[in-house]
Amino acid sequence: MSESMVQVTNVTKIYERGTQQVEVLHGLTLQIPRGDFVALMGPSGSGKTTLLNLIGGLDQPTSGEVWVGGSRIDRMPSGQLAAWRARNVGFVFQFYNLIPVLTAEGNVELPLLLTKLSAAQRRKNAAVALQVVGLADRAGHKPSELSGGQEQRVAIARALVSDPQILVCDEPTGDLDRKTADDILGLLQVLNRDHGKTIVMVTHDPKAAEFARRTLHLEKGQLLEQSAA
């Protein structure tokens, strides 16, 4: 686990809100080894989601460097960054963000439309991903026909289907009850332990953070300390 998957160096992020400038991250430096499972905790406005967005290539820093999986992504052009995300990152959101008009299988297959796989191969890969998250029998159901936990499992299958190096999870259990949340976190643990996925997860929930290998605390845009699970 010594090889670095994420290397964030002296990163600053400033947002412009109207005429005001808000500095969310202040010269933050962070290293996450390959195969790690990190929980990012901290109060609202501490910069957790901003840091997660930078690592996932959804946003770019005002200054500093962001390296993920050996690629420097902080100055990558938009089109190149989109292609990089498709190949390297899986995203899991708090509210699942599934496409309501597609079935579970369709949602999982969606990222594969960006690949050169045949339709049959895409369907096969989607079926495997749904099997991994234990939802093979709900492939034909639309999101509105699934429970919250099942929707999140579909979202995880969608994140996994293109076999990314890193999973970026923003409050993945924030909308679920304790029992379902524990199931989802257990699934993430399995993906980290058995499939070697590096996972970076933002959470407010200390119990959720316990599922990670270590927890990083942010406050006012700076890293405080880390604790091992």
């Binding site: 498709a86 496409i99 960006l114």
Partner: peptide
């Protein structure tokens, strides 16, 4: 709008 943002998140380009 959020769904379109998800598409971009998954790697679909602006174009």
């Amino acid at each position: 709008i959020p769904e379109l943002a998800v598409l971009k998140t998954l790697g679909f380009s602006d174009g």
